[in-house]
């Protein structure tokens, strides 16, 4: 009788099962639904419907613009914050870190609803400025996703290189552009990846903050599934997947940790 020996590779079985059932299978299902019609037969109907609809293309564009804007804002705000967090003086007290992490402990739907009421109280009303309130809600919700990757790359940053840059006579802005920025580039890119796609596909924030007057591509997916139009909904989800794939392809080289040498020399 062959004995079953426990091997180290068996540790991967739980995750392998998880990976098959919750990652591979759903992806295959999305692709299946995207290219079939309601009767289950193969069709390009959803493709034609989506790309033949001017409004949907524009919706995709607007979602992309909002996503990009949110990414830029989150990185612009998150970058200095991450730099402050890395500073040992602040980390020791722990309070600042706590302040940034604490909002993440509260349920995000609740947080969004509270943000809406807060903005309403100070006179920025979702019904009158739906895009403005949606943007504020987006930045508020996705800021931590931008800060964390930036923070972790800045921790790994080699401080000696910065000092060397000063020693060699670089000014502060020069040091920032030629040393710090290239070293944190992987962080910036992964922050952008963490913020851009979720923003485009979120629907709760736009519903709550924009008083349901704003539609993003995520709302469109949700609407189609609500109305039992799984094929149409899946096709839009498939488009989102393709966009992610393209973005990953474009940024595939830049995520590697680069040595700063090329920049400094």
């Amino acid at each position: 009788m062959k004995k079953l020996r426990f091997k180290r590779k068996h540790l991967s079985i739980p995750y392998l099962l998880f990976f098959i059932f919750f990652v591979i299978l759903p992806l295959l299902l999305i692709v299946y639904y995207a290219f079939t019609d309601a009767n289950g037969s193969f069709s390009f109907g959803n493709f034609v419907e989506f790309f033949g609809n001017r409004n949907k293309i524009r919706l995709l564009s607007v979602s992309a613009i909002i996503g990009a804007l949110n990414t830029v804002l989150c990185i612009l705000i998150g970058y200095p914050v991450a730099m402050i967090l890395v500073n040992k003086k602040f980390v020791k007290s722990g309070i600042i870190v706590l302040l940034f992490i604490m909002p993440m402990w509260i349920n995000f739907v609740l947080r969004t609803a509270a943000t809406r009421d807060l903005l309403y109280a100070i006179g920025i009303e979702g019904g009158n400025y739906p895009y403005l309130t949606t943007m504020i809600g987006m930045v508020y919700n996705y800021l931590p996703f931008a800060i964390l990757p930036l923070y972790s790359t800045m921790l790994k940053m080699d401080k000696n290189l910065i000092e060397a840059s000063y020693d060699l006579g670089a000014t502060k802005p020069q040091t920032f552009v030629k040393t710090i920025l290239p070293m944190t580039k992987p962080g910036i890119i992964s922050a952008a990846q963490m913020v851009f796609m979720p923003t485009m596909s979120s629907f709760v924030i736009s519903d709550v903050m924009g008083e349901r007057k704003i539609q993003l591509i995520g709302n469109s997916i949700q609407f189609n599934f609500d109305q039992m139009r799984w094929n149409e909904g899946s096709f839009i989800a498939f488009i989102m997947l393709s966009i992610i794939a393209i973005l990953m392809f474009l940024t595939r080289n830049t995520t590697k940790v680069e040595t700063v040498r090329g920049g400094v020399w």
Binding site: N55, K56, L59, V62, I65, Q215, L250
Partner: peptide, 30 residues
């Protein structure tokens, strides 16, 4: 479809142009 169009509302085609320009700039930059 009507209801989706109502919810989407009038979006100016400029949105498309901005996105295309954005993509071109990004590729050019990389």
């Amino acid at each position: 479809a009507l209801w989706e169009n109502v919810k989407i509302g009038h979006i100016s085609p400029i949105a498309n142009i901005i996105v295309i320009v954005g993509i071109v700039l990004m590729v050019a930059f990389v």
